[in-house]
């Protein structure tokens, strides 16, 4: 049994302009101790997927359907109090912006202690020593003194470490990280990723990491999901996605990675904007931006199908496999040549 099994998850928001289908039929699973990376542009439904799993979407005007099984139990349709007991204990989350994710009026110690006391029947003193232990584990220097400092006395990277400490304080089985490194500078990003990988070994948690940075995914993920316009367009092990990408959108993402020694004046980009989720394009949702578009793409929505010889590798594109392999190899060869 997988730790987390999501099938046909849909999250729709009612707005004044109509129904926004922020997540539209997404299925995947996360195994114990594994890392799943979800990649895509802003507004493609990555974050909403995670917030739906955590039950953190606003209650009014949100319609969620499908199934989310955590350790075999449906947590999408469970009671609020049961979900609350799960949150912060077995499933924990860290967020994109460490600058605003900690409450400014409480010491970080108080916020960590709160996380412990919400789920464990221990004394304040025990909770505090647990908090201190975690702060040391995430590499806060002089943790004994800093535990009584306020968030504004920490740098962004240090705050993200505090957030990670707070998420891991109850030893969760699943850690959901929503763009944990996006708001940090590059050197800090590397440190935080390294920290997460090290802690994953120590704590044995599974990680779901959302990012728009393929570099992050390459470094940390075992499996990868590429999302576009509220749907999964490609899904497989990190190895296959990077060695044999089969969707033009994935190619676009790979092609737009900045490279230091590339002999180009401008960064390569995917043309156009992601579509509105109020009214997504007919046929393939990527067709208005796709350089390989042909007639059927505008008419018929492609299904998420396995690549012929690999059952685990799924993709959603009408192109024939030969062309896809050829184009992927061309792209990768180009990248290798530049590097």
């Amino acid at each position: 049994m997988s730790l987390l099994e999501v099938s046909d998850l849909k999250t729709h928001f009612r707005t004044d302009d109509g129904i926004v289908k922020a997540v539209d039929g997404v299925s995947f699973s996360v195994e114990k101790g594994q890392t799943l990376g979800i990649v895509g542009e802003s507004g493609c439904g990555k974050s909403v997927t995670c917030l739906t799993i955590m039950g953190l979407n606003p209650k009014v005007n949100t319609i969620s359907s499908g199934e989310v099984l955590f350790k075999g139990e449906d947590i999408l349709h469970t009671s609020a109090s049961k979900l609350r007991q799960l949150r912060g204990d077995e499933v924990a989350m860290i967020f994109q912006d460490p600058m605003t994710s900690l409450n400014p009026v409480y010491t970080i110690g108080a916020q960590l202690v709160e996380a412990v006391l919400l789920h464990r029947d221990v004394t304040k003193k025990q909770a505090r020593s647990r908090a201190l232990e975690l702060l040391k584990a995430v590499g806060i220097p002089r943790a004994e003194r800093r535990i009584d400092d306020y968030p504004h006395q920490f740098s962004g990277g240090m705050r993200q470490r505090v957030m990670i400490a707070m998420a891991l304080v109850n030893d969760p089985d699943l850690l959901i990280a929503d763009e944990p490194t996006t708001a940090l500078d590059v050197t800090t990003q590397a440190q935080i990723l390294e920290l997460m990988m090290r802690l994953q070994e120590d704590f044995g948690s599974a990680i779901m990491i959302i990012t728009h940075d393929l570099g992050v995914v390459a470094e940390i993920a075992d499996d990868v999901i590429v999302m576009y316009a509220a749907q999964i367009v490609e899904q497989g092990s990190a190895n296959t996605i990077f060695k044999r990408p089969h969707h033009p959108y994935t190619w676009g993402l790979l092609g737009s990675l900045p490279r230091l020694n590339a002999d180009v004046e401008r960064l390569v980009q995917i043309k156009g904007q992601p579509p509105s989720l109020l009214n997504p394009p007919r046929g393939c949702r990527f067709h208005p931006r796709c350089p390989y578009v042909f007639n059927i793409c505008k008419e018929q929505e492609p299904r998420l199908l396995p690549v012929s010889d690999q059952g685990e590798h799924l993709q959603r594109c009408h192109l024939d496999e030969e062309t896809k392999d050829r184009e992927a190899q061309k792209l990768l060869a180009g990248m290798m040549a530049e590097a």
Binding site: M54, L56, A80, S81, R84, Q85, L86, R87, G88, D89, A92, M93, F95, D97, T100, S101, L102, N103, P104, E114, A115, L118, H119, M163, M166
Partner: peptide
């Protein structure tokens, strides 16, 4: 605010989220 979402993600009951955070 983000820290209110953090409090909910920690598993704080709604009453506590409002009162404390």
């Amino acid at each position: 605010e983000d820290y209110v979402r953090t409090a909910r993600a920690k598993g704080a009951p709604e009453g506590r989220v409002v009162r404390v955070h």
